[in-house]
Design a protein around this nucleic acid. Structure first.
Lengths: 232, 232
DNA sequence: CCCGGTATCTTAACGACGTCAAGATTATTT
DNA sequence: AAATAATCTTGACGTCGTTAAGATACCGGG
């Protein structure tokens, strides 16, 4: 049924590094076409492989997206850590630097950012993904506590997600929500009617810093100010 | 080729109210299956019509989604206005009520909420959609200004989007970003590792009010008008 | 060395999707 | 009443994710 295979096909019958090639192709597709134009077949095409080949490495589309989401979360963590280090060295606000890094990561590759936050079906229970998510959240918790003048954590490397953030949870939630919401509103075009005139980058340069400063002041403002309204 | 049409088909050849039926079907599909399970063919199936029929009323899938997004934005505005009125009558915080209404709208039908914010290709330039979006934004601007003890607007019904919010823009952006980010993090499951233990609703009852109170205090902090924040 | 088992990849096909062209049917206008 | 427009169906096209069956390459134990 297949005696006449093309020479090039036979020579490359085994790709050899398909998993890495698929990941690279997926990131390229997300960067070029966004999540809407993302397709398993297109990724396979770019990797020079049949549409069924990726199944051996990722199971199905969900598996590939879970992998991409994990890598994206790691990059988000790296970007935040780098921003913190750079801000520390320059004596600027660590929290504002984190916020800017978060927004820039989202704007830099909206498709990838959307994959990270599950706009397309993926496995959020995946162990590697959960680890990556926990790391990001830990960075946020640490920085929020630091910005409030508290100890970051007893031990620097204990699991920061499940245990510590109880007392500062509202502050952490506000910080994450604000930064994440601002990012998603931007990449979804919900703020276009505000940014269209001056351009998105100019808008960011003009207003983002004030927004982040307002957020930072909110986090350090009231130690117990929020409590009496808990009933509402 | 078509002499033998089924009797029921011939009698209902013209649906009569397909546009409304498609909208109803679309909302039902979004509520049941979410945005991931949303399909033009499935909506047509529920409306009792062939897959090609909706094209005459919506052009294509993008047109249908734009319509749904417009209705969803209107519902969001209605929910916010109702929450404000109710909070006013009971002497509670208007801003917290808006925030809660926003989150509840998102959690009540995540698929629809995602359509509103363009997770699937739609026409954001559509006039009706822009009007609905502007209305929502206007409500938010008004309430943020009110919460800061300022006049809501010179004239109550002039276009509030393009002109007014310049001075309070950072506060408005923080409010919208925080509430929107909190909503999307919740419906995307990014907070599941926090909500899994006690359940999502219990988590909301416990922490959402504190989060919103923190936000409200942040908005009034800048000008030093702590009147409302002190009460709520 | 080679030989069998296993991992990897291709081919071919399936059903579902959005969309379009062509035709049938009903509503509206003239 | 005839012509025109609006509405809906049929059938088809190309693309998608996935699967089963078969082909090919790698690899460790005789």
């Amino acid at each position: 049924m297949t005696e006449a295979m093309s020479r090039v096909t036979r020579e490359h019958y085994h790709h050899g590094a398909l998993r890495q090639a698929m990941i690279a192709a997926a990131e390229a597709v997300l960067a070029e076409r966004g999540l809407g134009g993302f397709t398993l077949r297109e990724c396979a095409r770019r990797a020079g492989v049949s549409p069924a080949a990726p199944a051996h490495h990722f199971g199905n589309l969900t598996g590939l997206l879970t992998t991409i989401a994990t890598l994206g979360f790691d990059d988000l963590s790296d970007a935040m850590e780098a921003a913190v280090a750079s801000a520390q060295a320059q004596g600027r606000s660590r929290l504002a630097a984190i916020a800017r890094a978060y927004v820039e990561t989202a704007l830099g590759n909206p498709g990838r950012f959307r994959v990270v936050f599950g706009q397309r079906e993926m496995d959020r229970q995946d162990a590697a993904f959960r680890a990556a998510a926990t790391r990001s959240f830990g960075i946020l918790v640490r920085e929020v506590r630091l910005s409030r003048g508290l100890q970051p954590s007893r031990l620097p490397d204990e699991k920061p997600a499940a245990q510590a953030p109880a007392p500062d949870l509202p502050e952490v939630l506000l910080a994450w929500s604000a930064v994440h919401g601002f990012s998603t509103l931007l990449i979804d075009g919900a703020l276009d009617f505000l940014t269209a005139e001056e351009g998105r980058q100019a808008f960011l340069d003009k207003h983002a810093a004030r927004l982040f400063a307002l957020l930072a002041s909110a986090l350090s403002a009231g130690q117990g100010l929020a409590k009496e309204a808990a009933r509402d």
